[in-house]
């Protein structure tokens, strides 16, 4: 492989170019470098959280190709080579919060905040794909994002409100 070097200890290191929030980063990674660690350690984008590291909690959710939520704890950085991602740091633009972020604050849809980045990205992906989701579709879209504080109620309200629909419950 052309984009690989073997260092003096015999460890293979790969050059990857990964676009995050519109900026392309070219870095060396090992085969076992996970995307979540690439984001947090190499780019210091610590809004992407580690909660379970096994794809169960969704704290590390990022948007692949700007629209598809995936768990970055299960993706290798080498697999992400050449791809584009949006992390929570890329949701607000120019100091202006995204509508979803505003609604999260308004409805008290966050408490400890640890699941919030992943939750917001899942919500963002949902409303991009389906601007008027039903309450069940909202629940379904965030079912891979575990929250231990809110009981989800205010999160569901915030997302429904962000979609301009009646607030359930």
């Amino acid at each position: 492989m052309s984009n690989m070097i073997i260092d003096k200890d015999g460890v293979r290191r790969y050059v990857v170019s990964i676009t995050v929030n519109g900026d392309e980063y070219t870095k060396m990674v090992k085969s076992n470098t996970l995307l979540v660690n690439f984001l947090r350690d190499a780019l210091d984008l610590t809004g992407t959280k580690k909660g379970c590291e096994l794809g169960d909690c969704g704290s590390c959710t990022v948007l692949l190709d700007g629209k598809t939520p995936i768990n970055s704890c299960l993706m290798l950085a080498v697999e992400a080579d050449g791809r584009e991602f949006i992390t929570v740091e890329g949701v607000a633009s120019h100091e202006k919060l995204d509508h979803i972020q505003e609604k999260f604050i308004e409805h008290g849809a966050l408490q400890c905040g640890y699941c919030t980045p992943g939750m917001i990205l899942s919500a963002k992906a949902l409303l991009t794909r389906n601007p008027k989701p039903t309450e069940h579709e909202v629940r379904e879209a965030i079912a891979g994002n575990l929250c231990r504080c809110t009981g989800y109620i205010n999160i569901i309200k915030a997302i429904m409100d962000a979609s301009g629909q009646e607030i359930p419950m």
Partner: peptide
């Protein structure tokens, strides 16, 4: 099969 993020991968 699973939650959205897992189904996407």
């Amino acid at each position: 099969m699973a939650a959205n993020q897992v189904r996407n991968a």
